[in-house]
């Protein structure tokens, strides 16, 4: 009885979670500049209009550069932080990892304005570099969360074996550790990329003359006649995010399987 109520609740919950998102593709293909039901017809015009927008292409380029750089830097920092916290005991560990994870719990506007204050005081110019710094800061905690479980499952005897056989630490990392955790590393890169590509508030505070994609979208939202094109762009971004996330999830599962297998064969 209560199970049936909970199941009903869960179905409604998932529908509520997804319903607004489903409007995106519906109105992106709707042949009317007014966003309302009933639908008036099917069209590709809104997608075609995106191809003609130069500013959009520039913003997409900027976002691509920022998301790629942020995800790579954040993943490298996360690899170092995770390796240190999972394997070693050292003084100040809790405080250090706490500081690194803090952006996960801070309002983004606080990160945005504090970096903006530094830029203003130092007389620096706002540029894509300032956005990359902000994005690395917020991506790193999520990358650590992804990498942590695969470091925890990693069988230390494999690395010890490599060290005993005379390999250096760097070679051991490159030839033993990295291949074993590779799926989570890629998963971490994809998550970092997705977060940075989507992030608005920090980019809004820290962007100079080159807007990112979300900042560009924000500037378009003021014009009612651009809304259908924004819906088309949103649809494309939604598809991109879903593809990246699905890839990331598949890799994460593969990583869990791979590490699981090595540890059982190790036990045997």
């Amino acid at each position: 009885m209560s199970k049936r109520i909970l199941t009903m609740f869960m179905i409604i919950f998932v529908i509520f979670l997804y319903a607004p998102t489903l409007l995106l593709p519906i109105f992106a293909f709707n042949d009317s500049s007014i966003i309302a039901f009933p639908l008036s017809g099917f069209t590709f015009d809104w997608f075609k209009s995106l191809g003609a927008a130069d500013e959009l292409r520039k913003a997409a380029g900027t976002s691509l550069i920022i998301a790629t750089s942020s995800s790579i830097i954040a993943t490298m920092l996360a690899l170092l932080a995770t390796s240190a916290t999972v394997r070693y005991k050292f003084p100040g560990k809790g405080a250090m990892i706490g500081t690194i994870m803090l952006p996960m719990f801070l309002p983004e506007i606080i990160i945005g304005v504090s970096l903006l204050t530094v830029v203003l005081l130092a007389g620096l110019k706002l540029s894509i570099y300032t956005i990359i710094m902000g994005h690395v800061l917020i991506c790193t905690p999520f990358c650590i969360a992804i990498l942590r479980s695969s470091f925890q499952q990693l069988d230390p005897s494999l690395e010890e074996a490599s060290l005993d056989l005379g390999e250096s630490r760097a070679t051991t990392f490159r030839r033993v550790t990295l291949p074993l955790i590779m799926p989570s590393v890629i998963s971490s890169l994809l998550i970092g990329f997705t977060i940075s590509l989507d992030e608005f508030v920090i980019a809004f505070f820290l962007s100079g003359t080159e807007p990112t994609l979300p900042v560009y979208i924000w500037s378009q939202l003021r014009f009612p006649q651009r809304i259908p094109s924004v819906m088309a762009l949103g649809t494309l971004l939604l598809i991109l995010s879903v593809v990246l996330l699905t890839l990331s999830e598949l890799l994460r599962r593969r990583s869990a399987r791979r590490l699981g297998q090595t540890s059982t064969s190790g036990a045997l």
Partner: peptide, 20 residues
């Protein structure tokens, strides 16, 4: 071990201190 852990976390920690 402690030294190795500290040297590995120093870079991401320095980044957080510097930028947060």
């Amino acid at each position: 071990d402690a030294r190795r852990g500290l040297s590995q976390i120093s870079l991401p920690f320095a980044f957080s201190v510097l930028l947060l």
